[in-house]
């Protein structure tokens, strides 16, 4: 399979992620969108590593990104719980205290 196929999947995943982030009214879906964007990046890392020759740099980066995504999800879910506790809602448009 040529590189373009990987990149195309990655791009598709990225766009789906963005769309999910921008359009969903639930913060959980926004977080899921973020996960998709991160995984789009992972596919790119692994694919470019596979087609650019020796070394494991790209794959290592992918592993780091997975770890980061896990950490990020933990922090984001904690914040989300607090936001819910404060606003009784998980809509991102409701948490607009800083606007004032």
């Amino acid at each position: 399979m040529p590189l373009e196929a990987y990149v195309a999947v990655s791009a598709a995943l990225f766009v789906i992620g963005i769309a999910c982030m921008l359009s969903r009214r639930n913060v959980l879906y926004v977080l899921m969108g973020i996960e998709m964007i991160l995984n789009a990046a992972n596919i790119n890392f692994v694919a470019f590593n596979r087609f650019s020759g020796d070394g494991l740099d790209g794959r290592m980066f992918a592993i780091f990104v997975i770890i980061l995504a896990a950490a990020e999800a933990a922090v984001a879910l904690a914040i989300l719980l607090n936001v819910y506790h404060l606003f009784r809602s998980v809509k991102p448009s409701d948490a607009d205290l800083l606007r004032e």
Binding site: I18, M21, L22, V30, P92, D96, R99
Partner: peptide, 14 residues
């Protein structure tokens, strides 16, 4: 433009 809505900011960024 400072609406306080994250998704709006994100759309600007995109």
């Amino acid at each position: 433009i400072q609406t306080g809505r994250i998704q709006q900011y994100l759309s600007f960024a995109v």
